[in-house]
Amino acid sequence: MQKDSAMSALKMMGIVAVGMAGLAISKQDPDIMALARRKYGSTLLSINEAIKTREEVAKESTVAAVTLLARFEIIACQDSSTQEAWICHLQGAAIMLRHWTKDDWDRVTNPQTPRTFLHFFFMMAMGSIIKRMPAPAHIRQIVQSSPLFKAEAEMEPAIRLFDIVCKLADLHSSSNEAPGVNHLAEKISAAMSIEKELLAWKSHLPERWKYSSGENKLDKAYGSPCHVYACPWQSYIWNHYRICRRTTHAALLHYLETLALPVTQAHPALIDACASQQEASREIQAAMMRELRASMPYILDFYDKSKGNSRLFPQHSGVFGLLASIQAMMGVADICEEDAEWFRQEVGYASNQEIDAGV
């Protein structure tokens, strides 16, 4: 297969490692997983050898191989102590992109590549939220200035949302600072500003981005409502909106609860306003969780029955990016036990669906 493919050997090694890991999980076969980890190790060694030269660092296939290792970590690592190992690979890929020149970006000609890169950048921003650090400034600059990300109209809403997610990463990176009243007030104001931007993002979406609601016939675990989107790309971006909004309100609730202690003797109107916002934030969190669940049947079904498409290319599904974002949300925001159990099952099922689509 590799001999007959025009794909680079390095990228193919990463694909084989991820595919074997997905097969091992699907079959619950430790022997296949052992082989997958060996392929992972050999891929990592080959990457380390390749990036010694400037030419290899600037190849799209090298960056792709590194991000494939991140995907391997997302689906193959069951130990909670290593569940964030995928972030290390994404950080390495981000450093590689720092060295790309305009000519390197001009060589990226595949029409699907901008979406693939943006999938990767959303994962990176969510990893930054987990690590409580700002999103890489040069990545934000690439998205804002590169003509590659302005080539199609469907990219514009995603780029606007990516900027908001980066602002959330900035906000979350400073949440460990000393919680003085003035500092907390600034953080509450910043969180509310992000919430306003998220609402504006939704209200300014083109008509073609609106989704419909139907009856879920895939699996009773998701509940009755089911969203139907124009394409998987839109469902992926919509779910990042939901995850970002829910995480924003988790941060806002944290700030309000911390502020509640020093303002117990404050004006009753201020206390009532804080309590009212807490209630509203919890309602928004619950609503975003319901919408996430309703979107899953469409995403995991991998086809649009109305158009007769039996299968989509896996790079269009965004399932891996969504899994990383869900990891970030679960690591940052409080999740009730029922939803936590549902997500744990979801991660395994979605990983297997993604690998199955790739195979």
Rank of each mutant, 00 (worst) to 15 (best):
A94I: 04
S42M: 12
L199M: 13
W201H: 03
G348E: 14
F162S: 00
N352S: 12
M1D: 14
A333W: 04
L261H: 13
P206C: 07
I194W: 00
L261N: 14
I299D: 07
Q141S: 15
T62N: 02
A135G: 05
D104Q: 01
P179V: 11
W233T: 00
A250E: 11
I74M: 05
A169F: 01
I159W: 05
D79I: 10
A50Q: 02
A273F: 07
A260P: 02
A24H: 00
T82W: 05
E354P: 01
S295P: 01
A151S: 15
P147Y: 09
H119V: 04
T53M: 05
P225G: 01
S276E: 06
H172S: 15
T109H: 08
I15G: 02
L218H: 04
A294K: 00
W86H: 01
Q2P: 09
A200W: 08
V143I: 12
P134N: 03
L252F: 08
M329N: 11
P30H: 05
M1W: 07
G127P: 00
Q353L: 09
H183E: 13
P297I: 08
E177A: 10
S145M: 13
G41C: 13
A24R: 00
D170G: 04
N309C: 07
A273T: 10
T67A: 13
V228I: 14
R290L: 09
S189A: 15
I299F: 11
M20T: 09
T101P: 04
L292N: 04
V165Y: 01
R115D: 08
M7Y: 05
K150N: 09
T101K: 10
A93F: 04
I87A: 06
E156D: 08
T247V: 15
H172K: 15
T53N: 03
Q78G: 11
K59T: 13
G223S: 02
S128K: 02
P297R: 11
Y303L: 06
A65N: 01
E197H: 15
S128L: 08
L35M: 08
E195P: 01
P262L: 10
F320S: 03
H316M: 11
Y303N: 13
